[in-house]
Design a protein around this nucleic acid. Structure first.
Lengths: 153, 153
DNA sequence: GCTGAAAGTAGTTCGAC
DNA sequence: GTCGAACTACTTTCAGC
């Protein structure tokens, strides 16, 4: 797929805000008929511009009110250790995001949990069991100012 | 709505992984017919358990390869200043996430951009224009280990 | 690359259990 | 609370432009 034209961008902007729209609705929003919109969306999916469609749940209603951000530095930085850390983190389902960083810490983790007690447990039983962790600093979210999956396009 | 039973949880688990499934498909996955699944999903939406449905785009394909994490501390911490900061951050469309934190920094920001140059511009022209910022520390994502919108339920 | 219509399929409603 | 059928609406295809 070559480049996205303005119509493609409009479709992406619409779908990243609300994906459960009918093709008709999207078509109406951009003054087209259903068929070209249908084909463009399909192309955007096939070419990977749209990775997936997901339902966003309400953290608090499903009883996961605590969000912690955790900064981790490794003691040793060989390739093997980093790959190992990578694999072990991926196995922890409480970890919603994990990034390998450039800067004075190696990793950022975002962790969602039921309670502070569970966080204590999580650190004690899971995180600290991962070998080679040097520094571990925890921060807790007091309030979500913004949190979106949208990109500014 | 009272409590979620195991069937509701199963539906939520399915939809937060992939929301563009037909009611039939979901029904098949949990050994039910379409009607009860349809009604449960509708109830989950109405009661707010499902906040919304969104399309997740591929950052790199849409030309937003840079993710920065920015830690901000304010100089003064009166209610007025915090609210003001809140409002000004919400107006910045490059900011995908912003959390008010407990810990030695006040705010975490996740910012998605086209290039490091744009980040420089962003800090110089937008972020630093917000008054009352004391400390501002930037980190860049080298690699995404995991990044999901799912909760572990 | 779009339109509009036709065909196929899924979403949605509802009476029975 | 679920099933299954009937109805409605959307998705999907395609000939014509």
């Amino acid at each position: 797929m070559e480049k996205l034209d303005e119509i493609d961008l409009k479709i992406l902007r619409i779908l990243q805000k609300k994906s459960n729209r009918t093709t008709k609705e999207v078509a109406k929003l951009i003054n087209l008929t259903a068929s070209p919109v249908y084909e463009r969306i399909k192309r955007l999916e096939e070419c990977g511009y749209i990775k997936k469609y997901v339902a966003i749940l309400d953290k608090k209603l499903i009883n996961i009110p605590i969000t912690a951000i955790c900064m981790v530095s490794l003691r040793y930085h060989d390739e093997g250790f980093i790959d190992k850390f990578d694999k072990q983190i991926k196995a922890l389902q409480e970890v919603q995001e994990c990034y390998h960083m450039a800067g004075k810490v190696d990793f950022f983790l975002k962790i969602n949990l039921e309670s502070l007690d569970k966080y204590h447990e999580f650190v004690r039983l899971k995180l600290s069991k991962i070998e080679n962790i040097g520094v571990l600093e925890s921060y807790f979210v007091l309030k979500e100012i913004t949190s979106t999956t949208e990109y500014y396009i």
